[in-house]
Nucleic acid binder design. Structure first.
Length: 120
DNA sequence: GCGATGACAACGC
DNA sequence: CGCGTTGCCATCG
């Protein structure tokens, strides 16, 4: 017992927490890498979230498409298959985009337990 | 041990 | 609104 933090950083544990957070993002909502990292208890490690999501590569059990970059921007490069899949899945869930293909954060941003009601 | 890289973020111009 | 710079942190050669 004693220490909950045996090492300065446990990749396995962090990965597990990140997965748990991503898994609980409600359908039709999105969260930024920074939000997910913070919700997973890893403030400032937004990069690690991206690295992890890229590592799972193909795990349907994880709604990775609901995780986006700051400002509602899609982190994946334009023209990539992953990006297309992400956008298609988001739209399938009713997520709306603004102007230049950005997710409307004001409408769909997920905040730990606070759902953003879809205004009509 | 160190420099380079990356599904990031914030700031400045 | 696009682009470059800086900060942050873990992984890789």
């Amino acid at each position: 017992m004693s220490s909950r933090r045996p090492s300065p950083f446990d990749a396995d544990a962090a990965q597990d927490r990140i997965a748990a957070v991503v898994r609980r993002i409600p359908l039709g909502c999105v969260a930024t890498y920074g939000d997910v990292a913070a919700a997973a208890g890893l403030p400032g490690r937004a990069r690690m979230v991206g690295r992890y999501l890229g590592a799972v590569d193909g795990v349907d059990a994880l709604p990775w498409h609901r995780v986006i970059a700051a400002g509602g921007r899609i982190a994946l490069p334009d023209g990539s298959a992953s990006r297309t899949t992400q956008l298609r899945r988001l739209m399938a869930e009713g997520v709306t985009l603004t102007g230049s293909g950005r997710v409307d954060l004001a409408r769909h941003r997920w905040q730990r337990g606070v759902l953003a009601p879809v205004l009509d």
